[in-house]
Every structure is written in C-alpha cells, then in structure tokens.
C-alpha cells in the first residue's frame, strides 16, 4: 500500500521539483470537506501508479508559500509536475477517470 506523503514549503523543491518521476501534488486544508472526499481516491491511485508516479500532499494552511507560488485559490487542487514543471492543474472534485487521464498524459 503506497500512500501520499506530506511535504511542506521547505521540502517541496527537493521532493517535487527534483523528482525523477512525475509527482501528483494534492493541495488541501483541514477545513475542506471535498478534500476529505478526494483523499481515498488518491490513496487508490497512489497504489495503482506505484513505482510510476509519486503522490504527495501539501496542507496549504501550514504551507501558504507553496499555494501562493502556484496561484492556488481553490481547494482541493491537484497539480501534476513533470521535470519540475506543473503540467496539469485539476480544481475541485473530479471523476477518477479524469484524474487518470491526466496522470497517464504525464507519463508519456
């Protein structure tokens, strides 16, 4: 079972931008109900893409710099990074199928 790991403003560059694989970043906050709803889906996807894509989460309440850096104004937002660059931004609760399409695209 592979689960998304927490990263913070300090570890973000190292863990996300310098990763050798694509990284899915889940931007969330404790007060956000749809963030709770999307979490089990991301757990499933972390398992399905284990070894291909890294999954991390950023609590934007504790780490406002990362949210500001990418102009995040709505959560949940998923950012998919490839070679240090955001290649997809998915805002709100989205169907798992759509998340997979974006993840598959990042693997190409």
């Amino acid at each position: 079972m592979s689960k998304p790991v927490s990263v913070d403003d300090n570890s973000f560059d190292q863990v996300v931008l310098k990763a050798e694989r694509p990284v899915v970043v889940d931007l969330w906050a404790p007060w956000c109900q749809p963030c709770k709803m999307i979490a089990p889906i991301l757990d499933e996807l972390a398992d399905e893409y284990n070894g291909q894509i890294n999954f991390v989460k950023v609590d934007i309440d504790q780490n406002p710099k990362t949210a500001a850096r990418y102009g995040i104004m709505s959560i949940p937002t998923l950012l998919i990074f490839k070679d240090g660059q955001p290649v997809s931004q998915l805002v709100g609760l989205r169907p798992k199928r759509e998340l997979k399409q974006n993840m598959d695209a990042a693997l190409k």
Binding site: A29, W31, C32, Q33, P34, C35, D61, A67, G71, I72, M73, S74, I75, P76, T77, Q89, V91, G92
Partner: peptide, 17 residues
C-alpha cells in the same frame, strides 16, 4: 476562472480571500 477566483465552496476557499 474556476480555481482562479471562481469558487463553489466558501468553506474550502474563504481563506484565500
């Protein structure tokens, strides 16, 4: 502008404003 100022969840996003 969804995610760039358009929101459907005030409890989620109020803190950005």
């Amino acid at each position: 502008f969804t995610g760039r100022g358009v929101s459907y969840c005030a409890t989620c996003d109020a803190a950005f404003f």
